[in-house]
Design a protein around this nucleic acid. Structure first.
Lengths: 193, 193, 193, 193
DNA sequence: CATGAATGAGAGTTCATTCAT
DNA sequence: GATGAATGAACTCTCATTCAT
């Protein structure tokens, strides 16, 4: 596949991403993507065989870019509480953004492709999230910022809450106030007054 | 619509429920329900116009029956901690059951019919859950069983966690151990040792 | 068939008539008539087998009643010109009435059941109309009111014009002015100034 | 849409025309046209969305071709009476042809889409016909061929008669003799003996 | 590589007609 | 007689997928 093809594939993925953001996963047809990309029907099939494959590659692209952001954040030299706060703020931003989220598409896809496999993307993200938060809490305990008897339980709690708020945001909406209150509740459970 | 029709309608709803449990919402066609019910194509349309209507009536049926169960449980004369534990055990059972859950169908439906309206079923259930738990925590504080500075925050936390575990259960699976650990974490945050 | 059944049959025909007036022939289903009559599906089939049969009986009923009207008019003791004028006025009234006409239903039916048979209802009506007008013209000539070299041609002309105006009224509308002008044109061709 | 597609669209319209000639408008389904064209179900939808659209485009095609014929006839250098006779002969031919007429389809369509709008196709054709005939009559008067006190009335009369004969031809048949007699009646009303 | 016409499977929906009650 | 639930045929319309150019 030449350089030109790589560009076109990337173009399709970026355009398809918008379609998935708009319509979720199950509602998206190959026709939708063809039309959004303004390419020919046959043309799309040169690069992808199904909406499933397209979504998976969109998510892969997403993951690659997320790593970049992650790397940037990790270069910060803040305290554990600062980093955790920053992390939660980032999550809050994602939760509340209405117009750029693949959340629905991802859930719809994984409802159909549920797997308890270690490689399940959502599981990997969840586990990674727990590990990161756990480390932060442990660092916070070490530095005297936090008090916590069960760092892993607390980390899991935070991840479950975020997951819960994410789904609520997509099904009946969630206000900034609700998010703030819950994040405050979580931080107050950790911070030594 | 005579008595006979009422029976048949109920039969269709119960059969359709199984279909929604198996296939979620978006994957279910009128044809699927016709075949599951072993009735004629036209016959189904005598009772329902769309899979949407069928799902909504299934959920209504569900809600009516749930109210019954709820009423039964409320007659218990246990302490607040007992009742909360019972409630969480009930939730755990639901979370872990693999074969009888409308969860996926419900989420798929509400992804498409998201509304921040007070009447949104999921929102009502969430708010009701928070209220119940909050009352229990306050009762527990009053009786000296619990310690909690922010009962509403704690109640919301529990509901978000349950929601989070519910979606995780449907996308990458969740083990009994994980649920137990998290419920233990939650109870330990409340109970006065 | 008892007296009661006769009444019910008449009720169905009268109700069905309204349906045909509203929707023509091809658009009317047995269901439409059942609903308009507020009887059961099976009930309708006790009396009629098809919309075709119903329309035909409606037309028969119509014809019987029309004869009554015709008889009344024929008792007039006017001059030929008066009677012809009266006849044309009657036709004009029918042409312009928008809300009570079976015209469309009748044409739609006869498009599908065209027959050059002497018994074809439309043909009988046309021929009868020509004969009546021809007699009137001849009477007018005899009495010195009219001048006409070809009474049959003139009579046919009038009937074709009425037919033409009838169809135009149902397809692109026709104004009272247009009808009056044409009827005036016709009468002036006959009357001796 | 490429050249090839234009050809195919034309092919579909020509084939559909035959179907409308055979079955009228209301009896024609997309399936009928698909089968007549020997193309796939989906294939037809690439070009047309409904039988209505197809009929309208058939009529448009018809109108375009009719204009061509009209242009040819107008180059004649005959007298007014000759041209009028020619015109009526043309109408007669159309009236009597049994196997190639869209008349029924057109009426059926306009029964359902009656509009008194200036753009109503039938109205435009009627008005155009009246105007043409009126001009011919006036020309005939000027040249001393015709005598007529109300050229517009006479022109309308001719158009109504033609319309009337057209509908009669489709509902109970009309013989060549009947047409000839009526056309003769009309011409004799105009020509100076 | 790219196009877009073409196919055909399959879902939705309506209604004439029957039949047990 | 009368009811209305039930059936199944027929139609509409949409897409995934292929293939000649």
């Amino acid at each position: 596949m030449g350089e030109k093809s790589v560009q076109k594939k990337k173009y399709i993925l970026e355009t398809a991403r918008k379609v998935f953001v708009d319509k979720g996963y199950k509602n998206v047809t190959m026709k939708d993507i063809v039309e959004a990309c303004e390419i020919s029907r046959g043309g799309l099939y040169l690069y992808f065989d199904s909406t499933e494959q397209i979504l998976l590659e969109v998510l892969q692209m997403e993951a690659d870019e997320a790593d970049d952001v992650f790397t940037k954040n990790i270069t910060q030299e803040d305290t554990a509480a600062d980093i955790l706060t920053l992390f939660l703020k980032e999550q809050k931003k994602e939760l509340l953004q209405k117009k750029n989220s693949l959340t629905v598409a991802v859930y719809e896809y994984f409802f159909e492709h549920k797997s308890t496999d270690k490689n399940n993307m959502l599981r990997k993200q969840f586990d990674a999230g727990v590990r990161v938060i756990e480390k932060l809490i442990e660092a916070g305990i070490a530095s005297g910022e936090f008090y916590c008897e069960d760092p892993k339980g607390a980390a899991s709690n935070i991840m479950y809450v975020l997951e819960g708020m994410k789904i609520d945001a997509q099904t009946f909406g969630i206000t900034e106030k609700m998010v703030d209150e819950q994040l405050l509740y979580i931080m107050q459970g950790l911070i030594i007054e």
